[in-house]
């Protein structure tokens, strides 16, 4: 009982929820795996990045909050890898068997988060991106198991967001050097967030994901949603961002060319060096400076531990 592409898309248009691999076409399954893998890897790789910053936490309480967030992110990764397992993929291989460059997390989580301030801004910007990106499938996705998993994930991400926003405001209220430090973090992390949402709609749409209704909104719509939360937050904090609301267009517009070049060593965007999206994809593919380090942290014990069981006929760690 093979299902044709057209029949599946028609069902989905009528609001039907896909529940298992038997109800999918190859095309649907491929697109679903792709989008889930990006989510799983994003959640997973945020953990070592946040951990690195947590080591600079200014108190036991703040370190504790950071750990709570890290645990949530690992939990979300776990849930999402389980969804991939149900689609026939090997969870253990996905986490421990892949090479660093094979992980599909955004470029932002290839960067070192070096201070408490950067963690706070990451919670406010990157977790906001996560919420925007995941609220969409939570409302719109045609894949039932994912929709249900996102209910819990969404709630917890809201806590991370509040953590980021409260701390950003608190730090900026202190003014002076501390506010300047927030500004420096925002200077590299804001354009990182903008780029997170990918190519603008007029250049390319990820049609498969939209046609299968894995998600409901386009890159530009999602980017606008993110900007409409992040720009006012920064304004309230007295922090400058290179974007503003344009009343005539009824949307946020950027004050710099997207895309443009980035120097990861100096954590600096080169607004005077516009590039093409192909060049962006190349930069992503080259990976950021902490990609190997973060994957190394996560895979630290796996092989060594598995080796303990060699000769017992039991290579599995589970």
């Amino acid at each position: 009982m093979s299902l044709t592409e057209e029949a599946l898309k028609e069902r989905i248009r009528q609001g039907y929820l896909v529940e298992s691999p038997e109800e999918m076409t190859e095309g649907y399954k491929k697109a679903l795996i792709q989008i889930l893998l990006v989510q799983a890897d994003t959640e997973l790789m945020s953990a070592p990045a946040y951990y690195m910053a947590a080591c600079t936490a200014p108190s036991l309480n703040t370190r504790l909050s950071a750990y709570a967030i890290i645990q949530d992110e690992l939990g979300h990764a776990h849930i999402t890898f389980r969804l991939l397992e149900d689609l026939g993929l090997d969870k253990e291989y996905l986490i421990f068997g892949r090479k660093p460059h094979e992980f599909k997390n955004p470029y932002g989580f290839d960067q070192p988060l070096e201070t408490w301030v950067e963690l706070v801004v990451a919670n406010a910007f990157f977790d906001r991106a996560g919420i925007v990106l995941l609220s969409d499938p939570f409302e719109n996705t045609s894949y039932g198991p994912w929709k249900r998993a996102l209910a819990k994930i969404d709630k917890e991400e809201l806590f991370h967001l509040r953590h980021g926003e409260v701390w950003m405001k608190r730090l900026c209220q202190a003014g002076g050097k501390i506010q300047e430090e927030v500004q420096r973090a925002v200077d590299w992390m804001f354009p990182m967030g903008v780029e997170w949402f990918g190519m603008p709609d007029h250049l390319k749409r990820h049609t498969a994901q939209l046609e299968y209704k894995l998600k409901g909104k386009t890159n530009d719509q999602l980017r606008q949603e993110w900007l409409s939360a992040v720009v006012p937050l920064c304004e309230e904090c007295g922090i400058h961002v290179p974007a503003h609301y344009d009343a005539e267009q009824g949307q946020y517009v950027l004050d710099y060319p997207l895309p443009c070049d980035y120097d990861p060593e100096r954590k600096q965007w080169l607004f005077d060096k516009p590039i093409t999206w192909d060049q962006v994809f190349e930069r992503w593919k080259r990976r950021g400076p902490y990609n190997e380090h973060y994957v190394g942290m996560l895979q630290r014990q796996y092989r060594r531990f598995a080796a303990l069981f060699d000769g017992n006929g039991n290579g599995s760690v589970r």
Binding site: H78, Q299, R300, Q301, A306
Partner: peptide, 9 residues
Amino acid sequence: GEWLGAPAI
């Protein structure tokens, strides 16, 4: 807390 890299997630 150092064991993000435990042998299983």
